[in-house]
Write a protein that binds this DNA or RNA. Structure first.
Lengths: 336, 336
DNA sequence: TTGAAAGCGGTACCAG
DNA sequence: CTGGTACCGCTTTCAA
C-alpha cells in the first residue's frame, strides 16, 4: 500500500531504521565503519521506503554532476549520430550521464552552451558550433572541454580526423585515373573539416601538377543543397570532370543532379564524397572513411581524464582515415 | 584580474552588491518587487563576479531538473538517431536539457534507467529497452514516461508509427506484382515494431488469399545479420520469391546476400525494407517510410505537458506511414 | 522594497 | 561504530 507520491528522503530512512542520516549515508555508500546489523536495518528501511538518494542533493554535496555533455551542430546527418554514439558508449561505461545539445539553426547557441556548462563536469564540443570565446568562458569556470573536428583553441585537448593524407590519397587516385578538371563542392567556411579538406585538396592537386580548381561550389551540408549546387556546375559548358565533395551528403546530392542531367557517373562525371556514411556504400560513392565512433569514444576518454584531474600536457591528435574506392570515381579492375 | 577558479556564489554577489541573497535571487529572476537602483547594483556585481547560478542549487530549491531523458536501444542505426533528433529539437525549444541513454548490449539497463530517472523530470522510452516493471517503477516515483514504438503499459502516453496499414499496402503492392512465395526476415521477438510488422504482414497475406509464410527468418537488426540470415534462406532450393524485411538494415543485408549469390533484384528475388533510412533510397529499396522526426517531436511535446501537470486522459496515437516503392520490389512503369 | 531564515536532500568531518 | 552538524547554492515564505 505504499502509495508514496514523493520519493522518500534520507531522513525518513533514518527515522525508520532508528539511526542518523549520517549512518544511512555510510551504509549506502559502502563505508566499512558500519556495524553489519545496522547496515541491515538501514537496507531494510531503504527497501520498504523504496528510497533512492536524490541526485541533486548528492551532486550538490559531492560537488560534481557525474554527467557530461556533447555539443554538435546537428544530429540529422549520420555522421554526428555516430560520433555521439561512440561518445555515449564510453561515457556510460565511465559512469557519466550524457547531455546532448544541438546548435544548428537554434537561437543563442552561446547561451545554450553556457547553460549546459552548469549541468556537467565537462563537455565535448564538435565543429564550429560556438565561438572560441564561449569555449574560453566554459574552461574558465573550470569545466574541461575537449574539442572535436575543429581547430585547437586555448589549452583544450583537441581531436581530429585526418584530412590531409586522405585528400592526398584521394587526389592521387583520381589523378591516376587521368582526370584533369577538378571542382570542389562544399563550403569551406561552413565547417573546419570542409575547410581543411578543401585546402588539402588544393595542395594535393598542386603537388600532382594539376591545374588549380576554380573557387569551391559553396553549399550547405545536406543532400538537397548538394544537388542544387552540383546541378548548377554540371550545366555549365566547361563542367568539371571530377566533383570532389566536402561530405557524403552533398556528394549524394551531386549524384542525383548528375542523374537528372542524364550524365552518367563515372563516365561523364566523377563524384567523390567524404565520411563514408552508410548510404555512401549503396550509392557506390568513392569516399574517405572516418573513424566516427572512435572519435567520439576517444573524446569521452580524454574528457573523463581531465575531469578526474589529469593535468598532463595538452593533447592534440589526428586519427587516420581511409580512402574507400567505389564506382563513382571510375572503373576499376577488381570488384566493388 | 578576476582569475576565479571557483564560480561565484549568490552570497558573494550579495556581499559585493551590499544586499541579501534573497534580493539577488529576486533581481535575477525578474521579480517586480526590486527597486530599479538595487537591481542595477546587483547586475553589476553579477557581471563583475561572472556569476552564474548553480544549476544544482537552483534545481534543488525549485524541485525540478528542467531536464528530461530519452532511452533507446542503440544510436547506430539511422532510425533512432532521427527520432532522438526530433526529440531534442522540441525539448530544447521547450527549455529542457536532454539526457540520452542507450541500453543495447549494456549491463543492467534497469539500473541505468532508474538512475536516469533521478536526473530528469520525465522521460521517453523507446522500444523494448527495459522491462515493463521498470517503467512502472519510474512512473511510481512521479516521473512521467512517454512510450514510443512499443506497446502501452500502465497509463503512459504511447505513440507508435502505423505498422498495420503499411503492411497491408506493402503486401497489396507485392500481390499486384503477382508474387506468391513470401518470407519474412527479422526477429519478431526482438522488437515490438518487428513483431507488429510480422503479424500485420501475415494478416495481410491471409487477406490477400496468399499462402502463409513459413516461420520468420530471425536475425538481429544490423546489416550483417540480415546478410547472413538472407543468405541462408536464398540458398535453399525453394527460396522465397519475396523477402519482406523487418527493417531497412536487414533488408540492405539481404540485398548484399542476393548479390553474393548472383541473384538479381527484383528479377530473381524481391526484397523490401521498413523505415526508409537514408541508405534505402540509394539502394533502391522499396520500404515503408516512418515519420521519425515527428515521432520524437511529438513524444517530447506530450512529455512536457505531463511534466507541466496535464492530467488529461491517456494518449495513445499511431502516426501514419507511407509505402515507398522503389526498384527492389519489381519493375514499374513510372520512374524511380 | 528588503532581509532573515527555513527548507531542498544529500556528504563528510568531528566528537563521543 | 554512530550521531550531531556544518556545509553545498539556491528559492521562497514571513516579517519588518
Amino acid at each position: 500500500m505504499s502509495n508514496n507520491r514523493q520519493p522518500a528522503t534520507i531522513y525518513q530512512v533514518a527515522a525508520q531504521a532508528g539511526v542518523s542520516i549520517a549512518t544511512v549515508s555510510r551504509a549506502l555508500n559502502g563505508s566499512d565503519t558500519v556495524a553489519e546489523s545496522t547496515r541491515k536495518r538501514v537496507l531494510i528501511a531503504v527497501k520498504e521506503l523504496k528510497f533512492r538518494p536524490s541526485r541533486l542533493g548528492q551532486s550538490l554535496a559531492e560537488g560534481r554532476h557525474a554527467a557530461n555533455g556533447i555539443v554538435f551542430p546537428d544530429l540529422s546527418g549520420p555522421y554526428y549520430a555516430e560520433v555521439v554514439l561512440g561518445y555515449e558508449e564510453v561515457a556510460a561505461e565511465l559512469g557519466s550521464s550524457v547531455l546532448i545539445l544541438s546548435t544548428h539553426g537554434r537561437p543563442d547557441p552561446a547561451g545554450k552552451v553556457m547553460d549546459l556548462a552548469r549541468r556537467v563536469d565537462g563537455m565535448v564540443v564538435i565543429s564550429r558550433t560556438v565561438a572560441d570565446t564561449v569555449i574560453a568562458q566554459v574552461t574558465e569556470i573550470g569545466i574541461p572541454v575537449v574539442l572535436l573536428a575543429r581547430p585547437a583553441v586555448g589549452s583544450c585537448d583537441t581531436l581530429n580526423a585526418d584530412n590531409v593524407d586522405s585528400a592526398h590519397d584521394l587526389v592521387g587516385h583520381l589523378v591516376e585515373h587521368g582526370y584533369e578538371r577538378f571542382g570542389f563542392l562544399g563550403d569551406p567556411a561552413g565547417s573546419p573539416d570542409v575547410h581543411a579538406r578543401y585546402e588539402a585538396f588544393r595542395a594535393a592537386l598542386r603537388a600532382a601538377g594539376r591545374r588549380s580548381p576554380r573557387a569551391p561550389l559553396r553549399c550547405d551540408f545536406d543532400v538537397e543543397s548538394g544537388r542544387r549546387a552540383a546541378a548548377r556546375a554540371l550545366r555549365r559548358p566547361a563542367r568539371p570532370e571530377v566533383l570532389v565533395c566536402g561530405n557524403d551528403e552533398t556528394a549524394l546530392g551531386a549524384l542525383e543532379a548528375a542523374k537528372e542531367l542524364d550524365l552518367s557517373v563515372p563516365e561523364d562525371v566523377v563524384i567523390t564524397g567524404w565520411d563514408d556514411v552508410m548510404a555512401a556504400r549503396y550509392a557506390g560513392l568513392t569516399t574517405v572513411r572516418q573513424p566516427m565512433r572512435e572519435l567520439g569514444a576517444t573524446a569521452a576518454r580524454w574528457l573523463q581524464e581531465r575531469i578526474a584531474g589529469n593535468a598532463g600536457p595538452v593533447r592534440r591528435e589526428t586519427l587516420a582515415t581511409q580512402l574507400i574506392v567505389r564506382s563513382s570515381c571510375g572503373v576499376h579492375d577488381h570488384k566493388t
